[in-house]
Amino acid sequence: MKPGRLKQILLLTDGCSNHGEDPVVVAALARNQGITVNVIGVLDDRQSGKPQGLEEVESIAEAGGGVSQIVYQKSLSQTVQMVTRQAMTQTIQGVVNKELQEILGKKQTIEELPPEQRGEVVEVVDELGESCDLEVLVLVDTSASMHHKLPTVKEALFDLSLSLNARSGSNQFSVYAFPDPKKTITKMVGWTPELGEIHGIFSKLNSGGYTPTGPALKEALYAFAGKPLDERLRNEEDPYEETGF
């Protein structure tokens, strides 16, 4: 089985969207395009009680076919990599389930297989998770209430790249921030295989008092859509590399 390429948007936010189109709708749109949307709600370490407006976090991820989690700042690093991995597994399992249904005809999923066969299938899923290529567009809410959390976010992103780069499959990351008064989202880091060198990121931010999560997600989709161009260019170089020896 040739490992494919998985595409994800990872949204980091701490509140409810209050501007523009419904992010849940945009997430559903992304899913249709084969892009999974994961959402992490970041709480203050001292925050207690049930946070307001974070129900949206779950709805967006659900519509986007991804994983959501609400965490305190201090466990952000571990959560970011866990959510990303879980969503990868989920996507691969979805594909495998579809194949199973085609082969076996009925509504068969991995969970419903007898233990012996299930054991073999999960190994295949695990192997695909290790070897598939992955593209993650990180979309960071940099509205005022997020400001003091941004150093933690930066650390978590470095950590994410550390985790994923231990895999044998290749990775591409990019980081965008929102809101941006003119373009809705600002590109912080263009597509890169490593998020190690992101000093100075988030340093020059201007944020208004609004959170346009929906429009930002849509812009992120466009950013993904713009990608195939580069890929096509790279694919043209590939034959030479392969026949090079």
Binding site: T89, Q93, I110, E111, P115, R118, G119, V122, E123, V125, D126
Partner: peptide
């Protein structure tokens, strides 16, 4: 999580 459990069993 049935998949994860199965990996442990393996």
């Amino acid at each position: 999580d049935s998949s994860r459990m199965m990996l442990e069993v393996n």
